[in-house]
Nucleic acid binder design. Structure first.
Lengths: 219, 219
DNA sequence: AGATGTGAAGCGGTTCACAGCT
DNA sequence: AGCTGTGAACCGCTTCACATCT
């Protein structure tokens, strides 16, 4: 059924496809039906050569002398990213962060549907957040069973994150977004991405320090 | 005053120093005063060769046949990352995410101090979040003036993020952590890192799709 | 003329493998 | 004997530069 057998798309390219997608969505609101690699690059914050190389991995969807057809390329990238279907998402941990994530407008709009909120704090069970009822951690399996492979979001303290990850994997979740500041070990067929506030701040601290050193007295 | 003139530390290494820092903090709670690259690698989720190469950029702080002195290396990495001083942080945008960030325990604990919460919604001004009063966007300059170069966190909608970035830069902020789904342009002496939920989900969607394709019928 | 698509060169980062130190 | 520190090989990604097509 696939249009093209699984080409190999470099990881670095996959990471940028969402940038192009966003840039194209914006461009689609404008009046030009096509866009050049130059302009697409500008909107996505990368350089034009990279755009052309990246898009060439998807196949040839541009026209020489003209540019890329915005709508056509949008469809192509959405298909490539698997955004033509809705993915079920389960959020584990309904603290401050879990709340903020659940209320994030952009799940539904972008093809992700929150099918479950789960927590292990009895006082939170039954509470309704963003229109979804919080259920006990033990019911994780029920929450994601029968759906397409779900995406799990870990928004718990670090201490329980590995346990949660194990449960997610056992429940059949095949991708995990980890907000807990800890290294997770999962089977190799499960994808994990992490978002770690402390790391981001510490890296910025490094450059901040360099900045103030070089900016300071040159004697 | 610097112990060593600015060596060049590769970006990839800088990005991993926080991982080593965390692993070392955990190791320091154990009973071994030293740790091998092998064990440090395991805790940080990388491989041993990388650990040794990375640490070699900081200088020689290991002992052959023994390993690295945990406390010594902790100090060294903290110094390198600029975590021996407190950095002021200002959060712009006090919506769901801003709230969650402000309440994040780990700012103070890790050497970051929230010196300001700022929003442009009049109904939020004066509200107190995590012990800090929300002030109008216009007062951004006052909030960060007189401090060391601050770190700005953008937790606003995408539409106003560039304006906020411009104001942060004008106020003297030298590093920005951007949670808004948009490309920012800033002067080259300002560091920007971004955290983008939609991108993370879309990348996971890509691998999720690959997973279900290859996992499905092989006919 | 104008912009894509792509070999080839260049670059940074990872991994190997072992010399060197304790 | 054990583990670090590091040159060298390797690998993937980025950038260049231009042939190719509309």
């Amino acid at each position: 059924m696939s249009v093209d057998p699984l080409r190999h798309i470099p990881e670095a390219t996959v990471n940028r496809l969402p940038l192009y997608l966003r840039a194209l969505v914006e461009a689609a609101e404008g009046k030009h039906p096509t866009i050049s690699s130059e302009r697409l690059a500008e909107r996505a914050g990368v350089n034009a050569a990279k755009v052309r190389k990246d898009l060439s991995f998807l196949g040839s969807y541009g026209t020489r002398g003209v540019g890329y057809d915005v709508e056509g390329l949008l469809f192509q990238i959405r298909t490539e990213l698997g955004l033509t279907q809705d993915w079920p998402v389960v959020i584990v941990g309904v603290g401050n962060l879990g709340h903020a994530l659940a209320n994030y407008r952009g799940f539904g709009a972008r093809g992700f549907e929150i099918v479950g909120l789960v927590d292990n704090d009895p006082s939170k069970i039954g509470e309704e957040v963003a229109g979804v009822e919080v259920r006990p951690l033990e019911e994780l399996g029920d929450v994601v069973s029968g759906t397409s492979p779900a995406i799990g979001i870990i928004a718990t303290p670090a201490a329980v994150a590995q346990d949660v990850a194990d449960r997610l994997v056992a429940a059949g979740v095949s991708s995990i977004l980890n907000f807990a500041p800890t290294v997770l070990s999962v089977p190799s067929n499960v994808s994990v991405r992490k978002v770690d506030l402390a790391i981001e701040l510490q890296v910025l601290s490094f450059y901040n320090q360099r900045q103030s050193e070089t900016g300071a007295a040159a004697g």
